[in-house]
Design a protein around this nucleic acid. Sequence first.
RNA 1: GCCGAAGUGGCGGAAUAGGCAGACGCGACAGUCUCAAAAACUGUUGGGGGGUGACCCUCAUGUCGGUUCGACCCCGACCUUCGGCACCA
Length: 816
Amino acid sequence: MIDKYNPVDVESKWQKRWEESGLYRVDNNASAPKWYALTMFPYTSGDLHIGHWYAMAPSDVYARFKRMQGYNVLHPIGFDAFGLPAENAAIKRGIHPKDWTLSNIENMRRQLKSLGAVYDWDREVITCLPEYYKWTQWFFLKMWQAGLAYRAKAPVNWCPNCHAVLANEQVVNGECWRCETPVIRRDLEQWFFRITKYADELMRHDGLDWPERIKIMQANWVGRSEGTEISFALEHADMEEKEIRIFTTRPDTIFGVTFMVLAPEHPLVQKLTTSEHKAEVEAYIDKARHCSEIERLSTERKKDGVFTGSYAINQLNNEKVPIWIADYVLLSYGTGAVMAVPAHDERDFAFAKKYQLPVKVVVAPPQWDGNVPDEAYTEPGLMVNSGQFDGTESTSAKTAISEYIEQQGWGKRVVSYKLRDWLVSRQRYWGAPIPAVYCDKCGIVPVPEKDLPVLLPDDAEFKPTGESPLKSNPGFVDTTCPCCNGPAKRETDTMDTFMCSSWYFMRYTSPHFTQGAFDTEQVKKWMPTDIYTGGAEHAVMHLFYSRFFVKALRDMGLVSFNEPFKRLFNQGTVTHEHQKMSKSKGNVVNPDKYVSELGADTVRAYLMFIGPWEQGGDWDDSGIYGLSRWLGRIWNLALDDYEEKNCETTDVANLKNLLRLMHQTIRRATEDMERLRFNTMISALMEFSNYLGKIHDAGSVQRADYNKAVCTLLRLLAPTAPHFAEEVWSRLGYSYSIHNQRWPEWDPALAQDDEIPLVVQVNGKVRDKLMVPSSVTETEAKNLALGSPKVQIFTDGKKLVQAIYVPRKLVSLVVE
RNA sequence: GCCGAAGUGGCGGAAUAGGCAGACGCGACAGUCUCAAAAACUGUUGGGGGGUGACCCUCAUGUCGGUUCGACCCCGACCUUCGGCACCA
């Protein structure tokens, strides 16, 4: 009798052996074709939870599969280590963000090693170390040189009590999470990257194997719309500004404008507000400052606004219309001002109803009776009340009116985007310092490349308010100007952590390179990544910033490809008790206890088995023992003595059946691997191992054939359960290591079924299933179907109207 | 609210291009082993109805409607749940 499978001993033994033998070290110069399988690196939150494993285990399986197919696979790991949670820990618990982060990394590294992945730890990348962020800073300088970085005012969440900028997650119901003071929006001068320059290119995903839904989300994120920028004359004689510019996608409705709406933050609001409306306008602006953008844009929410007291002139018909402000208009989109056409826009209509503003129809709805309808009519139609454009189609009037406006010099056709430039400044400590210096004489000066990195000082004092400690650190702030050597001050803002994660995948190709951010030769060899897997929560932002980075670098001549990630795959989220796992909810599932009880291989297999990878699911460990039992059964059928019984007389048929199932299993497993459908891949292996179990008990094929089948099963299982497969492999006397073996290939002839089930339907209902030779022809199939007694019960005495044949699947008979 | 997904037995899920609904696993029930239990193994297992039986009929893929010889799959409307919404990462 063989000993029982003991995962804990087996796993630690092989992890040690793999490390000692350097089995997973990636050689840049190996002759095999390269395959870059990238997984999103984890944030250094402390413990890996089961959700991390859900991201890491299947992607490791896929990398191992590619490895067995003969590729030189790069499947690296690292840590996204800058960010807000480290700072929060510092404020709350008095731990320095650096210590917190590095000790978390140590723990996470231990957990990741227990996973048994093919990571080459020599290539680990950690974004908060100076050797890494030096180059993040260098990229900032490159963006600046390329004209892609600029400074502008942008609103931040501001707690007036703490005197600190708050992240969105630190604002709870409009209040500061620490002191519950209502949060306001305040403008600060900040750094931006001109991502909008690449808007059109970022909308396209030419040649990319990405999920359709992600492409759509990204295209919607760019939100390209073609429209017209039109100026409305201002009545104010004593004002410098003589016009308001608005953006509209409906220039055809311009004769229907009955009022104007500006965003409360619009720079002209102060000047346009007359003294009798001042108090009301101020109060409204103050209220708007307390609202989030999501609230403001909600179409469900009651639209409100206030009148400024001023008027604008619609230059097409010289009508005088009142100027209002309302928070449903955002300063960040278009020009921050809209012309309101209540008759043909739902929001404007609701607003006009509320404040009894006039509604003027300029595009006639079908069978229009000349009255104002009960709701906005937003479809095309015939133009009315529109001067010389009356009687034309509104769709053509769109162009005609735009051209007319351009001729008159009142505006121009423009393309507008919802996409906004990337705000990279953060008023925080735990990030890469922005390499800029402020000099009274020379202005804003970039830190020279030779002076990088601008080191983040360790001696930071964390005030309970959350204010950035860099501001009050004279040793950091006070410096000399790189131009004039005079006294100067450093930029105290740090960079958005999305900066760090926008290029880490290139650093992996040459992580110890000191002459630059990456070795161009290695990037050329490995990039773009063949596959990128990670959480769907990154569908837009992280992926968008990374794509922008690569395109900007391409235009600087630093890389020679257009897109970083050829294939993208987003795995789903693992929830627990149907909620997102988080420490604050206390529902975090730690994989360690399952690993120490059942082994990493069982946890890996179970995570892959619970459902399609892209769907995620709720964590429930009740099924995990099934996977543990399955490995135990394979252990027995592989290592228990095999005894042939009577197979001399029956082995031809038995062997044929075994080989058929084996080759079908190889085919299913290979195809499922490529599709990243690990749940059905494991099902296929289970069906095969169940069958092998029966053969083992019956002894119904010859020993050598049985052993070959077991050998195939082990290789198919090796990516999923790497330690287990290695152990059984070695016990069977095969040479080290199973992970250097080739992935099995299937023979289509052997996988072919001799007979297939043919379904027969009568009037859409299944009435019989016939086993027919797989070579069956259409005529044969139809005759067999009509000849079936079960079918004849339903066809006798009736007229055959139609007989549909689906090759090798079914015959559908229609009778009446 | 806007953008993007998902909804199938008691549970996780399968059905690759519109063609056998429920593969595989869990759980449950019954059995083997045992003094007993656990573990392991074997068998049964969507609902309803019929047949001594091999089996047969019928209903069923969130809800309501549509297209089709045929719909989990396509179309329309709705309900519920989840991801993102630019300073969580």
